[in-house]
Design a protein around this nucleic acid. Structure first.
Lengths: 324, 324
DNA sequence: ATGAAAGCGCTAACAG
DNA sequence: CTGTTAGCGCTTTCAT
């Protein structure tokens, strides 16, 4: 910047004024400065600016995996809102690893992001209190934080799964299996709760052997399929606890007959062509709602922590409407 | 930091030493400093540090859309390599908008990212030369830059499409349609080139009315399907120029009989279950190769610009193996 | 309309 | 093993 000032024959402060579109600078001078900037290929150092100003113009987004379509859609929505607020997004994947989540939070905190959106892993988040008190707003997305109260945007996990069970029961199923993510993932246990409640409401005996929570991989899901969805005492329907489970389940079921009825939680691309009935919700809205809430906080809203629960709806596409 | 120093009764420099794990600090002193840090909830300001040191510990990634599964997988791979090099990733979507791409480049440049990975839009990238000369390494991913020579990592678009045509011809198809992205997208024209060459090699007359390049939306693709893939003079096979085209094509074809043979370029999730034959390549490797190349540059490798072309392979799954 | 000086929070370079 | 000084590149404050 001092180079530009020298070349334009003005003070460094004038260059700063031009770069920041501040008024009260003579057009002729501005022109000279602009020319010098162009000639030198000057680009102002935002790091230095932020050091002086405080805000960095960035927000952090911590998810399980930016490559998972669910989170990438969330990422896109957050980016959209951030751009509208003239901010940039620093992303990080923690892969359900609470230690990695912590590292990312501290890292982003050190980078002085203006706020953070977190899909929390695990159930202990007391460590975030100091960061929040220090003035970094945090909004939790898709899952609530473990042991603190803070802004959270969720979808109706419980209600959605109750609905799924009811739907299957209405089509005549009495033995329904539930296959969810690890039990330390909030949405998994919440949907399992919905599953039990759904069984209860439908007058089905809840059989805990039919409910399995574990990390979804093709192997683990195939294993469960072989145990619960084949043979004479098999379940005739199955609920996939999230989009990962659903994808693996479809592969595992490819050559299984008779094919059980399937309802998935979370919509996913091409589910329509595969005729997969799902409990759908709008991931874009989830991200937007959370980001807007965060920017509200960044802009000074200090009302009580809010909890937003977005609706879900059942999208019948065939797989959930077959008889036992 | 000065607060910590005061509380611990040491100089600010000692705190800096502790925070940076520099040797030559008495364990007892370090302990006192650590305690003070804990008590104050101190988190060092990386912005200030970077101002002094030069490197910011970030790289920029500019793609068309972080929500597109293709790019999110790329994003994940880049993040993996960045993490291994102890860096963080700043992402931005430009949606094929050259102006937005420029803004993002300038923005990231102002933020002094240590390097940038760019999936370039359009065909004019001379504006990047000053940035590159100023010392920001750039690596182009999936497409080459327009009018400059620089590190680029691509997949074999041409060869892959030649292979697709050959495959369809071998199964008896003589009228093959090609449906690609906008003509200003490098991969689209490159794959179109492969399509022509493939027709030539297979002894088919290249009929330009069967090759359509435009923004893939369900509407545009449906329109083309109705024009080219129905009626007595219809094409009996179609090549989808990328994953977006393929997805829309599958929907558009859902109720079309007789169903044409389909080969897609780019693999995508669930393509296997939908029996879609594709020209597959490893997006993860694409991202990793590009990121590794970038970090090579960041670490001082100033050899001649490299061009890496990753292989593709045909994955036959049914849709490409049907007779006319 | 412009500029000089101070300082944001940190680290490099040099003492001690 | 520890501290002092200067300065990274910018903006703020106050003069002119």
């Amino acid at each position: 910047m001092s180079d530009v000032a020298r070349l334009a024959g003005v003070s460094i402060k004038t260059v700063s004024r031009v770069v920041n579109d501040e008024p009260a600078v003579h057009p002729k001078t501005a022109e000279r400065v602009l020319a010098a900037i162009e000639q030198l290929g000057f680009r102002r150092n935002l790091g230095a600016r932020n050091l002086r100003r405080g805000s960095t113009g960035t927000i952090g987004l911590i998810v399980e995996d930016v490559g998972n379509p669910f989170y990438s859609e969330l990422n896109r929505a957050v980016e959209r809102i951030a751009t509208a607020h003239d901010r940039h997004v620093l992303t990080g994947s923690c892969g359900e690893d609470t230690e990695r989540e912590r590292e990312l939070v501290y890292e982003f905190s050190s980078r002085r992001v203006d706020g953070m959106l977190v899909v929390p892993a695990g159930d202990r988040h007391g460590y975030l209190l100091p960061e929040m008190r220090a003035g970094t707003p945090m909004v939790f997305v898709d899952r609530p934080p473990g042991d603190i109260v803070a802004d959270t945007v969720l979808v109706d996990n419980f209600g959605g799964t109750v609905q799924a069970v009811r739907h299957l029961a209405r089509h005549g199923h009495r033995r329904i299996a539930f296959l969810g993510d690890r039990p330390d993932v909030f949405t998994a246990t919440e949907r399992l709760r919905g599953f039990r409640e759904g069984c209860l409401q439908a007058g089905l005996r809840y059989d805990e052997r039919l409910a399995v929570l574990r990390t979804p991989t093709l192997e683990s899901v195939t294993d469960v399929v072989n145990r619960l969805l084949r043979g004479p005492k098999r379940a005739t329907a199955v609920i996939a606890g999230n989009n990962r489970v659903a994808v693996h389940l479809l592969r595992a079921l490819a050559h299984v007959t008779p094919r059980p009825a399937v309802v998935g939680f979370d919509d996913f691309e091409l589910a329509d062509l595969l005729n997969v009935t799902v409990i759908a919700h709008d991931v874009g809205r989830l991200g937007e709602a959370a980001a807007e809430l965060l920017f509200g906080r960044i802009h000074g809203d200090d009302s009580a922590p809010r909890k937003v629960v977005l609706p879900v709806h059942l999208a019948p596409r065939g797989s959930g409407e077959v008889a036992p």
